[in-house]
Computed example of a mutant assay.
Amino acid sequence: MKPLVRNAALSSYVELSQSLGIDPRALMKRVGLDPVGLTVQDRWISGVAVTELLELSAAASHREDFGLLLAERRRFSNLGPISLVIREEPDARSAIELLVRHEHMYNEMLHGRLSEASGLATLKVSLELGEAMAARQAIELAVGAFHQILRSFLGNRWQPVSVCFTHSAPLDTGTHRRVFGPAVEFDREFNGIVFYASDLNAPNPMSDPQLRTYARQYFESLAVSRDTTVTDRVRELIEVLLPTGRCSIEQVACSLGVDRRTVHRHLSASGVTFSSLLNATRAQLAEQLVANPRRSLTEISGLLGFSAPSAFSRWFSERFGCSPRQWRVRRTTQQPSAEG
């Protein structure tokens, strides 16, 4: 399977695109991404589609610095649960090592490597997309995001020794020099940041030693293995796509960057089909939603991807043996005795 990234990789993408006069939703649909699902930051989408989207956006806006402009809008929270931990790490070294070690938790195509020699530290950044394609904007977004993290630890006046890119310089390097300082270099042999190794040991002014233990324990409870299954990914995408009314195996395959036969093959190997996984996920969500009396059944019907409330009611009756309204009434009357 091709690498996936969290929706948060495109955080502020819509706002930046609109500020530059381009239509973000049209471009997202062009690469098979769902603009509605983008609001759920912890869902996963195709890294190849994100990379292509950034290139298309740079071309449409005539801004070779598009990826870097997006990096400027990055926040710690865009990293997900790991952001709670790195804020409390004692120094930049510990934070960067943690980010590199657990990069699969927020971006499966990103690979960072920190090395030290002769008093200098080098943070190299690469992308593994599984196919040959232009990735200038995604690379600049990744390097820019790491630069933002280092600066948050070392202060706004901190400057790296150099920031390197393998691609050629843009026609206008103004944004690059404003963000990175005068030491930005192009046509180099690697993408990344070079800085003094002593910077890694600078104490983190944001860190609270008493909170660090709790943050670590919380993170370890959420930390996932690199072996997250295709079935898990498909289930997550079903949850995202259901409210859009376009939850099909074709749409899921597009989001994963593969064809539908590949999805079928992986699900079959796990002993499930797409329709059975769709029904199981829908049933789990239905129980949660119908139990909430503040949600109307018409609203729930839409959230579960049904074209009409009548279709939802028929499906629910077949699945649970009664209508959604009857199920809600029974749940409500049973609750007091259960609590008692």
Rank of each mutant, 00 (worst) to 15 (best):
L110R: 10
R331Q: 14
R30Q: 08
L127E: 07
D172P: 07
G119C: 05
G80F: 02
H266G: 13
K2V: 06
Q41T: 04
V184Q: 10
L99D: 09
E287T: 08
S19F: 06
N156S: 13
S162K: 02
V50L: 04
I86R: 01
G67L: 04
T173S: 15
I249T: 13
R63G: 07
G32W: 00
A95C: 10
V125C: 03
G245Y: 01
P309W: 03
A9H: 13
L277P: 08
V234R: 02
R246G: 06
L127P: 05
T51D: 04
L171V: 10
M109C: 12
P160K: 05
K2N: 12
V14F: 08
S270F: 13
Q217T: 13
A8R: 13
T166D: 02
I238S: 10
V31A: 03
D34G: 09
P209N: 04
A215Q: 13
F195Q: 07
Y214D: 11
R113F: 13
L154R: 15
P35H: 06
W327T: 01
A135P: 00
G302Y: 08
Y196G: 12
R226T: 07
F153K: 13
R93S: 14
V143H: 03
P81D: 07
E108F: 01
F316S: 03
R151T: 15
R235K: 13
N191Y: 00
I139T: 09
S225E: 03
S275D: 15
R216S: 12
V31W: 01
R233Y: 05
N191K: 01
L150E: 11
G112C: 06
T166L: 02
L237T: 14
G302C: 06
E88Y: 03
T228L: 07
P35C: 02
L256C: 10
S301G: 09
G321I: 02
T244Y: 04
S270W: 10
P182L: 06
H264T: 15
A9G: 02
D208V: 11
S12R: 12
Q284I: 00
R226M: 03
V194N: 11
L123M: 10
L129F: 00
Y218Q: 13
Y13V: 07
S162W: 05
L120K: 12
A142L: 00
S296N: 02
E55F: 07
C247L: 01
R151Y: 11
H111R: 11
H264Y: 15
L27H: 09
G47W: 01
G80M: 02
F186A: 10
F165C: 02
E318Y: 03
G130V: 05
R43T: 12
S296L: 04
L297W: 03
S12N: 12
